[in-house]
Design a protein around this nucleic acid. Sequence first.
DNA 1: CGCCGCATTGAAATTAGTCAATACTCGTGG
DNA 2: CCACGAGTATTGACTAATTTCAATGCGGCG
Lengths: 232, 232
Amino acid sequence: MHPTLSIDFGRGGVSPSPTTQPVHRDLKAELAALDQFGMVMSLKREETLFLEGDQAKYYFKVVSGAVRSCRLLPDGRRHIGDFYLPGDFIALGQSGAYLFTAEAVTEVTLVRYVRNRVDRLIGERPQLGTCLFAMLSEDLSSAQKQMLLLGRKTALEKLASFLLTMADREGAGDHVGLPMTRADIADYLGLTIETVSRTLSQLKTARVIALRGAADIHILDREHLQELAGDL
Amino acid sequence: MHPTLSIDFGRGGVSPSPTTQPVHRDLKAELAALDQFGMVMSLKREETLFLEGDQAKYYFKVVSGAVRSCRLLPDGRRHIGDFYLPGDFIALGQSGAYLFTAEAVTEVTLVRYVRNRVDRLIGERPQLGTCLFAMLSEDLSSAQKQMLLLGRKTALEKLASFLLTMADREGAGDHVGLPMTRADIADYLGLTIETVSRTLSQLKTARVIALRGAADIHILDREHLQELAGDL
DNA sequence: CGCCGCATTGAAATTAGTCAATACTCGTGG
DNA sequence: CCACGAGTATTGACTAATTTCAATGCGGCG
C-alpha cells in the first residue's frame, strides 16, 4: 500500500520560488519523514477530493496537477479560497470537519497522509510540528494578502496580482500556464467570467501580456504588470 | 516587571462564545502556562502596537479594549484584516517580520509575550504547541470565511454577517457595542463609509436592528438578520 | 454653548455585473 | 485530414450596485 518511490518536495525540486514558500526548502528533511505514511492517489478533472463538512481524516500534498478549495453560498455563488499546485499541502490544521470542498482542477496526483499518524509523529519529532506550524502561517499570510486583494483592489489590479503570483508559483519565468478556467479565476478573485476575460483582453491590448490560447499567457512587461498589481 | 495578577483567558471568563473559539475553553490550562512570561501593557486610542515589517519579537493577547490589524496599498487604500477583542491573540505564527500593522481601536490593555520564550516553552510543553496550532487554525478558518464575504457577498450581506459575528464575539446577546468607527468597518468589509452607513440605516428602517447612537446597536430580528447574512 | 469629528443622506458618476450573441478550441468521428 | 459539436472564452450593449462628491446633521467634550 505504501509507495516505495520517494515523493519530491518543493515544487518538483526545480526553480525555487523563494518569495512564496521558503519553508519548503528549509524543512524538506522534516517533511520527508512524512513519506512513510504517504499513499499516492489520483483524481480526474473535476472530481471531488473531499467535501466541506466531511470528517477530516487526511492531509494531502499535491504532486502534479492542480486542486481548488471552494465554498458555496446557499444561492450558488461560489468562492475559491485557493489553488493548490505541486508541492502544496491541503487541509493543514483542519481538525474535525473539513472547512471547504476540494476539487481537482486538472487531472491530479496527490499523496494522502492520515492525520492521526502525522499528529502522532509530531509527538516524536517536534521539528515536524514546527514545520507544519510554519506552513500554516504561510497559508494565513497568503489569506491575508488575498483579503486585501478582494476587499480593496480593482479588477485590473486583481488580475495583475493573480498573474504575477501564478507566474511566481509556477516558477517558469514569464510564462504562465493557467490550469484553471475563467470561471475558476473569477470565483477566486471575486469577479465574473466576463470581467476576467475583458480585463485580460485589456492587458493584451496594452501589450503587457500575450495570450497564445486562453490558458497560455506570457508576461511581456513584468514591470508594468507589477505597477498595475499595486502592492509592493 | 512580571505581573503577579493572573490574567484570565476566554474573554473574561464570562459568557462563553462556543461557536467562535472553542479552543480557549478547552486549553485554558495550557495557555495559563504562558502567564509567567506575560507583561501587561496598555495603549491609548489610535496608538500603534507594531508596524508591518517590524521585527516580530512578541505575541500579544488582548485583555480589554480592541485592536485592529491593517495593511495599506501605496495610494492609501486600507484594508483591516481583523479586529481583536478581549481574549484574542495577536500575531500568532508571525516569525521574522510582522505581516501587518496593529493599532489600538480604543484604549486597550494587552499582555505581551516574548516570542522566543514562548517558543522555548513549547519545547517543554508540546500541548501548548498544539494549542497555539489550533488557535492559528481558527484564524485561518475565519480568514477563509472573510474571503467568501469579501469576494461574493453584497453590502447588505456583509453588514448582516458582521453584526452577527460581532454580537457573537461580544457574547452580550442581542446587543452590539461597536468599538470601531464606520471607516474601520468599511475597511474591514471592503466597502465605503457611506455604504456602511446607508446599509445600517436600511436595516434600521426594516426594523431588523435599532441604533441608539452610532456605536450602540440592538439586534431586533436575529432570524431575519441571519437570513440576510446568507451563509448557514 | 459651541466646536470638531464622525455619521448620515442625497445626487451624480463609475465600476463591475447581467444578458445575449458570436468566436474560438480541442477532441471525436466521418 | 477535415468537419462537427460541446464546452469555453470573448465581445457588446445595457443595467445595477457601489463609489464618489457634496451637504447637512448629530454628539461628545472642552
